[in-house]
């Protein structure tokens, strides 16, 4: 229930951000240096699992953090790395076993394409990431983990208010493919997880 509320608040924030950026863009465009070489971003994310899987049915997922760094490799193309982390409290032991809580980390190699150019105050980007996901579980006093392969896709709207600083919102989706061995009837339930994770953050540009 708490997660649903904060997720809705997050969506509201993202919508507000889009409206503000759109309004600002209409008021006048300011030319920016277009030779951005590297950019770093940090954002506050509001992940939400869905579908018929252990994460959506057994966890109350908390908000998390997303950090990324990218370098320009070709006009409009960036490559880099992304790290994100959030936690979840088990609310239905029947679905996941006797786990108290879990920390979920995604690490990706990412490629990003800029739909609107870097010289614009407002830019829109889409990206794809492939990498590793780690679920670290805490059971009473003992810890163990699950891990696997993960891919991500995102769409981001960035607003630069100076040459070196900007804000952005990102709509991201994670697909986790875990290496969990279990009974055949539970394999699909435990091996796949889908997470939709909108986030809002700041970006630093270097030249």
């Amino acid at each position: 229930m708490g997660t649903d509320l904060s997720f809705k608040k997050g969506i509201l924030l993202v919508s507000l951000f889009f409206n503000l950026v759109s309004l600002k863009a209409q008021m006048g465009k300011k030319e920016m240096d277009d030779n951005v070489l590297v950019e770093f971003g940090i954002s506050y994310m509001l992940p939400k699992a869905y579908g018929d899987n252990f994460l959506s049915q057994g966890y109350d997922i908390r908000n998390g953090i997303n950090v990324d760094g990218r370098i320009l490799v070709a006009p409009k193309w960036f490559v880099g790395a992304q790290w994100s982390q959030f936690k979840g409290d088990v609310i239905d032991m029947e679905k996941v076993g006797a786990i108290e809580k879990s920390g979920i980390t995604h690490i990706y190699a990412v490629a990003t394409y800029t739909i609107l150019g870097n010289d614009k105050q407002v830019s829109v980007r889409t990206g794809f990431g492939a990498g590793y996901v780690l679920y670290r579980h805490k059971q009473s006093t003992t810890k163990f983990m699950d891990d696997g392969f993960s891919v991500a896709a995102n769409l981001a709207l960035c607003y630069r208010f100076s040459n070196s600083l900007g804000v952005f919102v990102k709509l991201e989706h994670y697909w986790d493919f875990l290496n969990i061995d279990t009974a055949p009837e539970l394999e699909t339930f435990f091996r796949n997880a889908q997470i939709f994770a909108p986030s809002i953050g700041i970006k630093v540009y270097t030249f």
Binding site: T142, F144, D146, D147, D181, T182, A183, F190
Partner: peptide, 12 residues
Amino acid sequence: CELSYEDNRRLS
């Protein structure tokens, strides 16, 4: 020492 758990495994 205490009970420990296998990574990447669930039982039914």
